[in-house]
Amino acid sequence: MTRPTAKNAHHDTHLDGTAAASALAAALARLGVVLPSLRGSLPVNGHGFVELGGCNAELASRLAQRINAAVDAQEAAGLGAGR
């Protein structure tokens, strides 16, 4: 049986960030949105970390519109935001 080490924990949290970045990129792609510098990064405070990076104003506006549309659809369906 392998004992957890600080190195293993660091590796696992880095993988958490990378997996979360991949999942977010896939979800955004379904909306037709690509954040060019979205990536998993080194852990921060022992937790996986995702760097969203920058994008141009047009892309940020489109992303905001898509998020608002999704929240509006949830609220119309009686699901409420953030669920």
Score class of each variant (00 low, 15 high):
residue 1 M to H: 10
residue 2 T to L: 15
residue 2 T to G: 10
residue 3 R to N: 09
residue 4 P to S: 03
residue 4 P to A: 02
residue 5 T to Y: 14
residue 5 T to R: 12
residue 5 T to E: 14
residue 6 A to R: 14
residue 6 A to M: 10
residue 7 K to T: 14
residue 7 K to A: 15
residue 8 N to T: 15
residue 8 N to Q: 14
residue 9 A to S: 12
residue 10 H to M: 11
residue 11 H to N: 14
residue 12 D to H: 07
residue 12 D to L: 14
residue 13 T to N: 06
residue 14 H to D: 05
residue 15 L to K: 07
residue 16 D to P: 03
residue 16 D to I: 00
residue 17 G to W: 00
residue 17 G to Y: 00
residue 17 G to T: 00
residue 17 G to S: 02
residue 18 T to K: 05
residue 18 T to C: 05
residue 18 T to S: 05
residue 19 A to V: 10
residue 19 A to G: 08
residue 19 A to H: 07
residue 20 A to W: 01
residue 20 A to F: 02
residue 21 A to I: 02
residue 22 S to W: 01
residue 22 S to L: 03
residue 22 S to N: 05
residue 22 S to R: 10
residue 23 A to H: 08
residue 23 A to F: 04
residue 23 A to I: 02
residue 23 A to L: 07
residue 24 L to E: 11
residue 25 A to I: 05
residue 26 A to Y: 04
residue 28 L to P: 03
residue 28 L to T: 07
residue 29 A to E: 14
residue 29 A to K: 10
residue 30 R to D: 13
residue 30 R to G: 12
residue 30 R to K: 09
residue 31 L to S: 03
residue 31 L to E: 09
residue 32 G to V: 04
residue 32 G to W: 04
residue 36 P to L: 11
residue 37 S to W: 07
residue 37 S to D: 13
residue 38 L to A: 02
residue 38 L to W: 04
residue 39 R to Q: 09
residue 39 R to Y: 01
residue 39 R to I: 01
residue 40 G to R: 11
residue 41 S to A: 15
residue 41 S to F: 03
residue 42 L to M: 08
residue 42 L to E: 11
residue 42 L to V: 10
residue 43 P to R: 08
residue 43 P to L: 10
residue 43 P to H: 09
residue 44 V to H: 15
residue 44 V to Y: 13
residue 45 N to D: 15
residue 45 N to T: 11
residue 45 N to E: 15
residue 46 G to K: 13
residue 46 G to M: 09
residue 46 G to H: 11
residue 47 H to E: 15
residue 48 G to P: 15
residue 48 G to D: 14
residue 50 V to E: 12
residue 50 V to Q: 08
residue 51 E to F: 06
residue 51 E to N: 09
residue 51 E to V: 09
residue 53 G to N: 06
residue 53 G to L: 03
residue 54 G to C: 01
residue 55 C to D: 03
residue 57 A to W: 02
residue 57 A to P: 10
residue 57 A to S: 12
residue 57 A to H: 07
residue 57 A to G: 05
residue 57 A to M: 03
residue 59 L to R: 02
residue 59 L to G: 01
residue 59 L to P: 04
residue 60 A to G: 13
residue 60 A to M: 07
residue 60 A to S: 14
residue 60 A to Q: 05
residue 61 S to M: 02
residue 61 S to F: 00
residue 62 R to G: 00
residue 62 R to H: 13
residue 63 L to K: 01
residue 64 A to R: 12
residue 64 A to P: 05
residue 64 A to T: 13
residue 64 A to S: 11
residue 67 I to H: 04
residue 68 N to Y: 02
residue 68 N to R: 08
residue 70 A to F: 05
residue 70 A to T: 04
residue 70 A to M: 08
residue 71 V to K: 01
residue 71 V to H: 03
residue 71 V to L: 07
residue 72 D to A: 12
residue 72 D to Q: 11
residue 73 A to M: 10
residue 73 A to I: 11
residue 73 A to H: 12
residue 74 Q to L: 15
residue 74 Q to G: 06
residue 75 E to K: 12
residue 75 E to C: 09
residue 75 E to G: 02
residue 75 E to A: 08
residue 75 E to F: 06
residue 76 A to D: 10
residue 76 A to S: 13
residue 78 G to K: 06
residue 78 G to V: 06
residue 79 L to E: 13
residue 79 L to N: 03
residue 79 L to D: 09
residue 79 L to G: 04
residue 80 G to Q: 11
residue 80 G to L: 14
residue 81 A to I: 01
residue 82 G to N: 09
residue 82 G to W: 07
residue 82 G to F: 08
residue 83 R to A: 01
